[in-house]
Design a protein around this nucleic acid. Structure first.
Lengths: 220, 220
DNA sequence: CTGCATCCGCTTCGATACTG
DNA sequence: CAGTATCGAAGCGGATGCAG
């Protein structure tokens, strides 16, 4: 990337991670070390030469390191997590328009779920599993906060949510009530699920009550 | 921008603010409403047609609105502040290499100072003013946290820091000790300034103790 | 087969010139 | 002052080639 040549921390950060695709590459590596082919699969739409370019650039920037045939984040790369989280959070309202014909990978759900439930605290713990075609997320909400992981680990969940990605996300993010989405199937304790949902913030979450153009935020 | 067409909150966020220059435009408007010419001056290096493009795109995205000849952020645009803050924070270590021949605007210092002193709490309040050629920042640190503003407002500060941008930033960010930077001039209570500096975190702040390439993070 | 590099049409960027 | 028009250069995206 061409440097902005501005003595500003934001501009210098963007000199490193501001290129097209770059933060999405970091998103993929934030899950864990990945091989080139796995990255390609997790980044539908990227050209193979661009992925190679971005990986080299991130290596130069000290964000990514290569061990054999695996790429992984450095400490400096892991320090980008708060950035990803805030961008993710800001992007959640943009999911209300549904999936359309966008690509989808089950592991992308982890971040969305973590973000949506970020401030949840529950005195009486709840474990909920979210299942979508191709994978899912296990959510453990306690008094200390929410931890996410892969489904199937540990004891059986109190409740299970199953459906297409935009449907389960609509319910989790509060775009729609449970009974408004007939394409979401609930198994186990409905009461436990309701407790989790009641503990989260309101719809758009961050003050999107606007005098401006009202309605869901625009895309592109 | 061409959409990533991924049903992922991060990708959708980047569809709106991922373009080159876009977040820097938001940075400028985060200070307050600005006119076209003021934006051009705050974004050295941008081409005028690109600024016009970005402003239109941000308007479509619901981030910016236009009132007469002023552009300003919508609520949705102001919701980007945590994103800017985290990116800024991540970028601070990249400032250690000094200014070089990068452009500089005094109002960029506000964000850097806020970020560097983000977690500072002081039972006995301190007011410090930082002066650089063309402007400066007033810092009021109390038990509730740090507030920044323009110099000259309110009572005279306890201490004043003056010097070139990279010098005062090095001292504030902890890249260098006060007596290591002869180009930084201190007026007023040295003790008050020291109390403020002691209250802040360590150098790179966020765990940059790395087994990897050591030394300051690379740019570009 | 994986992990890229090369080529090519197209879009975007960046610099300057120009207009209401 | 606030943009639009233009044009060469650089970057992107898709396909294909090729080495280990």
């Amino acid at each position: 990337m061409k440097s902005y040549r501005q003595y500003c921390a934001l501009a210098r950060a963007l000199d490193v991670v501001g290129d097209r695709w770059t933060l999405l590459v970091v998103r993929e590596l934030a899950v864990g070390p990945r091989r080139y082919g796995e990255l390609l699969d997790g980044l539908p739409g990227i050209a193979t030469n661009l992925l190679a370019d971005r990986l080299r650039s991130l290596e130069r920037g000290g964000v990514v390191t290569r061990a054999g045939d695996r790429y992984r984040l450095t400490d400096r790369g892991r320090a980008l997590e708060p950035v990803l989280d805030e961008l993710l959070r800001w992007g959640i309202p943009l999911m209300v328009t549904g999936r359309g014909d966008d690509e989808f990978r089950a592991h992308w759900l982890h971040g969305a779920v973590r973000t949506v439930l970020r401030d949840v605290r529950l005195e009486r713990p709840v474990v909920v599993e979210v299942h979508v075609p191709g994978g899912g997320v296990r959510v453990e909400a306690t008094a200390d906060g929410v931890r996410t992981g892969d489904p199937g680990a540990g004891a059986p969940p109190d409740a299970t949510l199953r459906g297409p990605p935009d449907a389960v996300l609509a319910v989790l993010a509060g775009f729609a009530a449970l009974d408004e989405r007939a394409d979401v199937e609930v198994a186990g304790s409905l009461a436990a699920l309701r407790r989790l949902l009641r503990a989260r913030g309101r719809p758009g979450s961050s003050a999107t009550a606007e005098a401006e153009p009202a309605g869901p935020p625009n895309r592109a």
